[in-house]
Simulated assay, not measured.
Amino acid sequence: MTSFPYGVVRVVIMQNGFNRFGNFNNRSPLRTLVNPQEIRKSWRSGGPVITGSIIVVCVAVWLIEIILRFLAPEAYMDFVFGGVVSPSLVLMNPWRIFTSMFLHSTNVLHVLFNMMALWSVGPLLERLMGHWQYCALYFISGLGGAVGLTLWAVIEPAPGWYTYALGASGAIFGLFGAVMVVFRRVGADIRPMLIWIGINFLMPFVISGIAWQAHVGGFVTGIALTELLTNGIPRLKRKSVATRMWIYGGFIVAALIVILVLCNMSNPRLNLSL
């Protein structure tokens, strides 16, 4: 493999009719998410195993939240607030960056909308990039979402540092950015997708409580990482996508961690603990 598989992108577009954003590869049967034989078959054929696994985990965690909220409210509060991400806690409890990506509010629209968005773009990217490269893109974009929240806390300290966020949307916006880069490179019509992304970016102005900062952070991270994968150092273009993901993904992660550390120099909670 000498470059990002643009030929595969074109074939996938032609085979699946990806001229509309809503038509991304969503034809995979749901049985591939629960049947071990189907999972193995789907893995070998480049099917959406990682995407399906993320959806299953997010929905399962959401159901646990619902059960706890009605049967054990105190346990529900411990469960949720023990996993949400907050700029003031991101260095002291770095695991929150990832646990928050599997938590959603108990409003069914939150988890439903996010999982539908993930299923609309995830299978295509997973097929194009490979399972583990796609998985890396997803979680690195989620890290970018946490960095977006932290950068905003520096700009707007109150209540920025004590903002709590949960949900997969930061990582999903990273996938939006990745699809936009790839489709633009192959000359596909991305206008419907841009409209969809624009609507999502405008939602915080209509619905309160949406962490738009995480959306922006994930989106920018997804674009930056995919741009490097597709248009990075010429000498690395002969390397496989997996190798380039290790190199560029590692660079992006290191850069995001440096940004987090620098931002936390003004973290009031961290300064108090010192």
Rank of each mutant, 00 (worst) to 15 (best):
F176K: 04
V220Y: 01
V147L: 02
M115R: 01
G198K: 09
L166Y: 13
G177Y: 01
G198Y: 04
T163H: 10
I207N: 00
W196Y: 15
S88C: 11
H110C: 01
A214V: 01
E126C: 07
L151N: 11
A146M: 06
R40P: 01
F79T: 02
A153V: 04
N271L: 15
V34E: 11
R185S: 10
P94K: 13
I39R: 09
R127E: 12
L262V: 15
S266E: 10
L229E: 05
K239N: 13
N23T: 12
E65P: 00
I67W: 09
I172H: 09
G167W: 09
N231C: 14
L229Y: 03
G83Q: 02
P5N: 01
R31S: 14
V34Q: 13
G17T: 05
T230M: 13
G232W: 03
F102C: 03
H131A: 14
F24R: 09
R44L: 11
N200R: 15
C58V: 15
L228G: 02
G218N: 02
G145P: 05
A242S: 14
L68P: 01
V220N: 12
V61Q: 07
T150F: 02
G174K: 09
P123W: 01
Q133F: 05
G217W: 08
E74I: 00
I233D: 14
F81R: 12
L125D: 02
V241N: 11
G217A: 08
F139W: 09
P192A: 09
V61F: 05
L118D: 07
A153R: 11
N19F: 12
G218Y: 03
A255D: 00
F4A: 02
L112P: 00
R127P: 00
S53R: 08
M265E: 14
R27V: 06
S53M: 13
F79A: 07
G174S: 07
E38C: 06
G232K: 06
G142T: 07
F205N: 10
I210G: 04
N271H: 10
I210K: 05
M203V: 14
K41V: 08
A255Y: 04
V182S: 11
V111S: 08
V220L: 15
N271Y: 14
I140G: 03
R244G: 00
I197Y: 06
S88N: 10
E65S: 15
H104Q: 09
T221F: 03
L143Q: 12
W62K: 10
K41Q: 15
P36L: 05
K41S: 14
L143H: 06
F201C: 14
M77L: 08
S169E: 13
V258N: 05
I13S: 09
V182H: 07
G232L: 01
A255L: 09
V59N: 06
N16P: 01
A255W: 00
L89E: 13
C135F: 15
L124I: 11
I257W: 11
V121H: 02
